[in-house]
Nucleic acid binder design. Structure first.
Length: 766
DNA sequence: GGGGGCTATGGGGGG
DNA sequence: CATAGCCCCC
């Protein structure tokens, strides 16, 4: 018998240790922020392995690849390399991996494509068009979310029609044909051999539920121990899959769910707190452990977070507490404009770095919407503070990346219509919209994919020879794919298609950037292929194209993080869940923004926004700074919002409500001409809050008067609400002015259309 | 069939 | 403000 050390148990507090040691039967862990949740999860897996459970009998499901990766590496630290054999991944990636083997049993090719959100939208748009419905009434996003939520609630198109509530809702919204679109959408995806994100869950459920060839028993017996992280974020469908795997006659029901109802922030994609309550009903023998001690944050922060979350009616009773010192009160920054907010936050970061010796990577700026990142970027750049933005447009969503990927998708799965449409005329080969529409129509009539159409139907089109050239190209790619790995195919595709040549011919800065991105993609494919060989273990390695495509479709930018770089983190509050930083800035705390205007009319959604705010607050270990602006550019215009209601929910005991800062005006000249109310930031001498008496020029946006376009002439000094002061270099005959804004760092010279721009002429000595 | 430029429209969080 | 879609012209 081998010697096994359980010394890791000594690193846990009583309740954590109980949760880790209770290996058999259903377990529920309610884990407050910073309460050592990940530690409990990983040690639990380690403990299972040390007690003789085979790693491949353990399945842990998380929501992000990052969480899965961290879990694996932390398990490895305790039990060594056998951690690799634990099935740890996101719901989507684990199910995709299984479907890659089993999909043929339920009518999909094993080489199925994963449609991302853009692909789904494109399919829906096409359907709406083909049905001659008004695209304004049949809003693409609205339809997509109806379909998505139907799938997440296991409502098939047939059942959708029978569901009065759904049908009435659609009628009320003047979209009675939604169910038809849903049905067509499902058929189209199936015919294209494509699964959207919801399908990865739904088809997994179908596989288990319909159980062809007793495939369900295969996975039930394999996954003897199931762990689910962030259970509060699961939707109905995800829970039903979990039940398929563990909830059956004779099962030991070894399922452990970990979550925190107070951090449930994904109801918009179907997550339901109801699952936690239902879990207790479904598994009455459940052992419940509440982790309430917070090890992360100082007590001011913990107290403030408790104050806020107490405003929510719906919650599981618990008391989060900490033994940590008081620390510092929460700081509040108030400014006149969003631009000023960016500046004050950047100032404060410099100040904190100096005073507390913080590294960039210990600091995060959290916002409600990704669109808010820009002002912070500008000001961080200005002070030479390295930063990294997460979210927004991911690398894989860039055009040049998606273009090459579309070739690869089409190679792996010729039925992939979305990929086909993307590349049939890219690079330009003279196959225009008219021809593509014709192909689409034939495809509809014969229920064929576009590739099948061009290969089998005699097309009467001028572009016929060009189409045949394209078909030949794809065939050569397929041939290549049979003999080579994903990397070689990708390089071949990039060259053969003409994409490389096209990008090379564009010598602009952007064009060069696109070429670099493409090369970066190729590098990442190479890495994928090589890593795969290294990891050769008992699972058959698969460096095929579809495997690679699956991996990256399910990957987000966050998953590519390079460790060790010292960057300030900019991300949405949603993306910050599970992370922690010494110093956190929660910005844009205004009504209509945080809480979002979308949530204002619905008390349940306000509660979700509050939980989101709670998540934001509890990311901070030592320093927490909140900010809001009285005015900001929103939807292309200046808006004036009240401070967020959430700010009032923090008592004066925990927030330093005195540090009032005011704007020094919309201009932001660093020369000091308009900004002498700002703290000096050069050299080592930094201050935190300028005192009230320190205020100088105050410029209320309301005082800003737009000068008529016709009055703006060459040589004039003008003021722009966003760019600040500028000099008009020239005005051309189309009424486009070239204006030099000295306050703008990267591209001070802007070309502005006078008929739209809001500019105020200012006197020379302003 | 392709490209440029104007106009209308939407606008959240993410796997 | 960004982008999709449309119209017009080549």
């Amino acid at each position: 018998m081998q010697e096994v050390s359980f010394s890791y148990l000594d690193e846990l507090n009583d309740i954590q240790r109980q949760a880790v040691s209770c290996l058999e039967g259903p377990v529920m862990v309610i884990a407050g922020p910073g309460s050592g949740k990940t530690r409990v999860l990983t040690y639990r897996v380690a403990h299972l392995i040390n007690n003789g459970v085979a790693p491949w009998n353990i399945l842990t499901l998380t929501f992000t690849n990052k969480a899965a990766k961290e879990m694996k590496s932390r398990i490895e630290k305790v039990v060594g390399s056998s951690a690799n054999k634990v099935w740890a991944g996101t719901f989507h990636s684990i199910f995709a991996r299984i479907l890659r083997v089993e999909a043929h049993r339920i009518g999909y090719p094993n080489d199925f494509t994963i449609y991302d959100t853009d692909d789904s939208k494109s399919v829906i748009k096409e359907i709406i068009k083909s049905m001659n419905l008004d695209p304004k009434v049949y809003n693409n996003n609205a339809i997509r979310s109806r379909i998505s939520s139907a799938k997440s609630n296991l409502i098939t198109p047939k059942n959708y029609v029978k569901n009065e509530e759904l049908m009435n809702y659609d009628k009320m919204n003047r979209r009675p044909m939604t169910h038809v679109i849903y049905e067509k959408y499902v058929n189209k995806c199936l015919r294209a051999g494509a699964m959207d994100f919801d399908d990865l869950l739904l088809q997994m459920f179908r596989l288990l539920y319909q159980n062809p060839d007793n495939v369900k028993q295969k996975y039930q017996s394999q996954f003897r121990y199931l762990l689910v992280d962030e259970f509060q974020d699961t939707n109905y469908l995800q829970y039903e899959i979990i039940k398929q795997l563990v909830f059956y006659e004779g099962s030991d029901k070894n399922v452990c769910i970990v979550g925190d109802d107070a951090q449930s922030i994904y109801s918009f994609r179907g997550a339901t707190i109801e699952n936690i309550l239902q879990f207790e009903r479904d598994f009455p023998s459940v052992n419940t452990f509440k982790l309430e001690q917070n090890y992360r944050s100082t007590s001011y922060i913990v107290n403030a977070a408790n104050e806020v979350i107490n405003y929510n009616k719906k919650q599981i009773e618990k008391k989060i507490w900490t033994e940590r010192l008081e620390g510092q009160k929460i700081k509040l920054i108030r400014t006149m404009t969003d631009n000023e907010e960016g500046k004050r936050v950047a100032d404060t970061i410099i100040e904190q770095k100096n005073r507390y010796n913080l590294q960039n990577k210990e600091i995060a700026i959290l916002y409600r919407t990704n669109a808010q990142s820009r002002v912070f970027e500008e000001h961080l750049r200005r002070f030479n503070i390295a930063y990294r933005i997460y979210g927004g447009l991911s690398f894989y969503q860039r055009k040049e990346i998606k273009d090459l990927l579309a070739y690869l998708r089409l190679t792996a799965n010729p039925k992939d219509n979305e990929a086909f449409k993307r590349v049939i005329n890219y690079p330009k080969r003279g196959i225009g919209n008219t021809t593509v529409s014709k192909l689409l129509q034939i495809g509809e009539e014969h229920e064929m994919s576009l590739m099948e159409v061009v290969m089998s139907v005699d097309i009467q089109a001028r572009a016929k020879t060009k189409i045949l050239g394209f078909v030949k190209l794809i065939q050569s790619l397929r041939q290549k794919a049979e003999q080579s790995n994903a990397y070689d195919v990708a390089v071949y595709a990039a060259r053969k298609s003409g994409i490389i040549d096209l990008l090379k011919s564009d010598t602009s800065v952007e064009g060069q950037g696109r070429l670099e991105n493409l090369n970066a993609l190729l590098d990442s494919i190479k890495e994928f292929v090589e890593n795969d060989e290294l990891e050769a273990g008992e699972e058959a390695t698969d460096k095929s194209l579809s495997q690679f495509l699956q991996t990256i479709t399910l990957m987000t930018d966050q998953d590519n993080e390079e460790e060790g770089n010292d960057n300030v983190t900019l991300m949405s509050t949603h993306a910050a869940k599970g992370l922690e930083f010494k110093s956190v800035f929660v910005v844009g705390l205004e009504e209509n923004l945080f809480p979002s205007f979308m949530a204002l009319s619905n008390p349940n959604q306000i509660e979700e926004e509050r939980r989101l705010f709670y998540v934001a607050l509890t990311r901070a270990e030592e320093h927490l700074t909140l900010s809001y602006a009285n005015s900001r550019y929103q939807f292309g215009q200046m808006r004036f919002n009240d401070p967020s209601r959430f700010l009032e929910e923090i008592s004066e005991d925990n927030i330093d409500n005195i540090s009032i800062m005011k704007s020094s005006g919309p201009g932001k000249s660093s020369s000091g001409r308009s900004g002498f109310g700002e703290p000096k930031l050069l050299g080592n001498f930094k201050r935190l809050a300028p005192t009230k008496t320190n205020l100088a020029l105050q410029m209320d946006p309301k005082d800003f008067k737009v000068s008529p376009a016709s009055s703006i002439k060459e040589g004039m000094n003008v003021l722009h609400l966003k760019f600040g002061k500028g000099v008009v270099k020239s005005v051309d005959n189309r009424n486009v002015a070239t204006i030099y804004f000295s306050g703008v760092r990267d591209t001070p010279e802007k070309r502005i259309m006078l008929q739209y721009a809001k500019l105020q002429i200012i006197e020379d000595d302003a």
